[in-house]
Each structure stands twice: as C-alpha cells, then as structure tokens.
C-alpha cells in the first residue's frame, strides 16, 4: 500500500496551481523534421578551443529541481568529467512550458525573457531534458519578437540537451576500467528530444561508451508515453492507456531498467508501473551514465 492522502475532494485554484507546477512540464512540442537542420548552431570558429574548458550554465529544469535533484547532481558530475566549468544560475525557475503548451503565450513571454536574461551570459546552456531544451531552442524564437527574438535565436544556438552536449560538443569518453555495469536498459525516446532536437543515437552511444549496458530496444520506441504536460492531468484515461502500452513494450524488451531523458515522461511511466504492479526500474539517463544506481529508482522507497 502506498501512502494514501485523502483530504477534501474539491479542487480549488491552489490545487490546480500545485498540480500545474508538478505536472505541467510538457514533454512534447514539435517542429517539422527537416527544420532540424535550420536550428542555429555555432560555427567552428565560435567554438572554444580544445585547450579551453567549456563554460556551461546548467538549466536544472523545474521537475528535476523539485522531484529528482539527483538528475542535476549527476549532470554536473558528467559535465565536470567532460572538462566543463559548471555554473548553476541561482535565479532560474521554470522555462514556461506549462503555460505555453496550454496556449497562454502571454504568460510565457515574461518567463522566456527572464530565462534569456538569466542564461545569455553562458557559453553553453545544458539541460537534462529534451523538452526544456526544445522549448528554448524552438519555441522561444516562435513567441518572441524584435530584439528578443534575436536574443532567443542567439541563446538557442548555445543551448543543448545533456546527452547531445556530452556526445556532440564535449565528446566525453571514459576508460573501459571506469565503466560501471548498469544492467539491461531499454531507452524511451521522449518526443520533444527526438523530433525537435534529433536525439536518438546520443543517449545510446553514451550508454555504450560510458557504461557497461546491455541495451535492449523496445518496439516502437518513438511513440509518445502519454505524459504530454497538462495532457496527463486533463485526459488521464487516454494518457494512462498510452503509458500502459509503452510499459508493455518496455517489459517485452526484457530490460530491467527503463531509461529516458525527460523526467516528466519518466514520472508518468514510473507512476503507472507502480499502479499496475509492473516491475521495472525507471531512471533518468544522467543517473545511469554517472553510474549512480545507489539512488532509488523513480517512485521507489528512499528508506531501506
């Protein structure tokens, strides 16, 4: 039995605020696939010399900040291992995805501007989430105009999802003897990372080169897990149906760990697995890459 908490069943504004803060970080959006190439990137000459250390500002993302700080701590460890100086801007909050994906662009614009002002001093911005990185690279330019649009594009060119940065920019490598065994893993491609940022090979490559992982691909790994930000709370039955399908495919792969790059999707999957009594460890890719199996998997008890 899980800890059960039953107060008044009525949902007030505060309830919804809380629900929103907690649930609404969408793992989604999208741009057309062929536009991936048009995403601005730094030219060779702009990139720091090999001898320089990468100056990285970490965007923790609000879900990791609130629910799973180990993702951020492991991200810092990985970035430092890759030769980066990591700064965590302390005034960061949320990138504005919840409001944006529910159509409240007006409420999103000030958050986008705040984010840009907070992070634009960085050489690189790295986020352990495809949907948050995609929000910055793809959607800020879409909702900002004039000078702010230009600043958004400029920041977009320096913003990366964690596995993308580690493999494509920092080129993190690890000697064989330092690679820890993370068991059998199946990787769920979160939608925004996959379709906005083209993240598919990077996490698998890193699992194979930084750890000893037995990668087992599940069927139709490109299908949404049903999280979708506020979707999972607005249409819970449809969302749960999708999560169950995903878990069924993950189980059929034979892997004991289900990994992914977006905590929203992972909380949805771990929560559904618990509800259905499905035995599978759900973890963020940063934890596996850092070899941190000591931290209980998502949704597991933290008291032995």
């Amino acid at each position: 039995m899980y800890w059960s908490f039953d107060l008044t069943p009525t949902q007030g504004v505060v309830d919804h605020l809380a629900a929103t803060v907690i649930l609404a970080l969408s793992a989604t959006p999208l741009r057309l696939v062929q536009q991936k190439d048009s995403q601005p990137r730094m030219s060779e000459s702009q990139q720091p010399q090999a001898s320089q250390r990468f100056q990285v500002h970490l965007f923790v993302t609000c879900l990791a900040d609130l629910f799973r700080p180990s993702i951020a701590f492991n991200s810092i460890a990985l970035l430092e291992e890759a030769g980066c100086d990591v700064t965590v801007p302390m005034s960061q909050t949320c990138c504005g995805q919840p409001g944006y994906n529910t159509g409240d662009y007006e409420a999103t614009v000030p958050l986008a501007k705040q984010f840009i002002a907070t992070f634009e001093g960085a050489d690189y911005v790295v986020a352990p989430s495809g949907s948050c990185a995609g929000m910055i690279t793809h959607h800020y330019p879409r909702i900002l105009e004039g000078q702010w649009h230009e600043r958004a594009l400029d920041l977009a060119a320096r913003t990366f999802e964690l596995t993308q940065f580690l493999s494509e920019v920092a080129g993190l490598k690890r000697p064989i003897e330092q690679r820890s065994d993370v068991g059998s893993v199946t990787y769920h491609d979160s939608c925004a990372g996959l379709r906005e940022l083209g993240i598919q090979t990077q996490p698998r490559h890193l699992l194979n080169t930084l750890c000893r992982a037995d990668l087992k691909e599940m069927e139709r790994t490109d299908v949404c897990c049903g999280f979708g930000g506020t979707f999972c709370a607005k249409m819970p039955e449809l969302s749960a149906n999708m999560a169950s399908d995903k878990l069924e495919m993950a189980q059929a792969s034979g892997a004991t760990t289900l990994a992914g790059g977006d905590l929203g999707c992972l909380m949805n999957l771990a929560g559904r697995a618990k509800r259905e009594g499905i035995e599978i460890e759900v973890r963020h890719i940063a934890e596996l890459l850092a070899g941190d199996l000591a931290t209980p998997a998502i949704g597991e008890s933290s008291q032995s």
Binding site: Y2, L7, I22, P69, F73, M267, K274, R275
Partner: peptide, 28 residues
C-alpha cells in the same frame, strides 16, 4: 517510505491513473 502516493488531493488528475513518485529529500 513508500516511494510514492496513490492519492494526492491536489493532483487527482494524475493519481486517478498512476501513483505520484515522491520527491527526493529537498529541492536541488
């Protein structure tokens, strides 16, 4: 202790269909 919640009054849309994983000890 349990790792998650089967019911939360402020997240009933979530907990109707899935457990809510408990956060680690404090915010990052």
């Amino acid at each position: 202790r349990r790792g998650g919640f089967s019911r939360l009054p402020f997240a009933s849309g979530w907990t109707q269909e899935r457990d809510f994983p408990a956060p680690q000890k404090d915010t990052f």
